[in-house]
């Protein structure tokens, strides 16, 4: 496939195929797109993301949020404003999209849209800069990471974060389950995300 196929629609399909076809239970997948900022520095910015959610939530046994009532109100307020921005209508207190509790992993995914990594910073930056996957399993390893985003992920309930470099960026996957390194997953990323080859 040529670079022309690299668009929002195919990205979404590829992220979805990666997560839904995996044996492991991934909570989300994000593609960090490589580009350059105005000073010429290498930047990984938001390309697209697919949020699947936590399996535990549907089983009713999982901890979906550790947030206080005030934090929930804040999250819902932000979602209401974002929804209004997207739909072009005034914020509504009874919008279906925001009435539901905003889980920790949903919030982490949303906040991700505002993030970027410059010159090899963070797990994604390291993976891209060194052309080597970064696989972090376990809350203790996430807490001990030098990457702010990894520590933040642990706070929001993640137990695994993975960054796999591709031709034009980095595929990041996160899970609330401990998942150990899988060559099968890395091979899938190479096939699905190496647009230039």
């Amino acid at each position: 496939p040529s670079v022309a196929l690299f668009n929002q629609e195919t990205l979404q399909q590829r992220l979805q195929a990666l997560i839904e076809g995996a044996r492991e239970s991934w909570t989300y997948a994000i593609f960090w797109q490589s580009s350059y900022d105005y000073s010429g520095a290498s930047v990984l910015g938001w390309g697209d993301g697919y949020y699947k959610g936590d399996d535990d939530k549907s089983k009713g046994k999982g901890k979906t949020t550790t947030s206080s009532a005030a934090e929930q109100e804040h999250r819902k307020k932000v979602l209401r404003e974002l929804n209004s921005l997207i739909s072009g209508s005034a914020p509504s207190a009874t919008d279906e999209a925001v009435d539901e509790e905003v889980t920790d992993t949903e919030w982490f995914f949303l906040v991700s849209m505002t993030q970027s990594f410059v010159n090899g910073m963070g797990l994604a930056g390291q993976a891209f800069f060194n052309s080597t996957p970064v696989w972090v399993t376990g809350a203790d390893r996430l807490v001990g990471s030098t990457c702010d985003r990894a520590r933040q992920g642990q706070v929001f309930g993640l137990q695994t974060m993975v960054c796999i470099p591709s031709a034009n960026g980095v595929v990041e996957l996160g899970s609330t389950e401990p998942i150990f390194q899988s060559s099968d997953l890395m091979q899938k990323v190479r096939v699905l995300f190496n647009f230039d080859s």
Binding site: Q8, Q12, Q33, S35, Y36, D37, Y38, V43, G45, W46, G47, D48, G49, Y51, L79, L82, N83, I86, E96, A97, V98, D99, E100, E106, F109, L110, M113, T114, S116
Partner: peptide, 26 residues
């Protein structure tokens, strides 16, 4: 970099739409 805000907007719209669908089917 100019493509990033558009990508975020599309992703956000999709995320909110999926939340809405989940809320309505619950």
């Amino acid at each position: 970099p100019s493509a990033v805000p558009q990508a975020r907007k599309a992703s956000l719209a999709r995320f909110l739409e999926k939340r809405k669908e989940r809320a309505m089917s619950a």
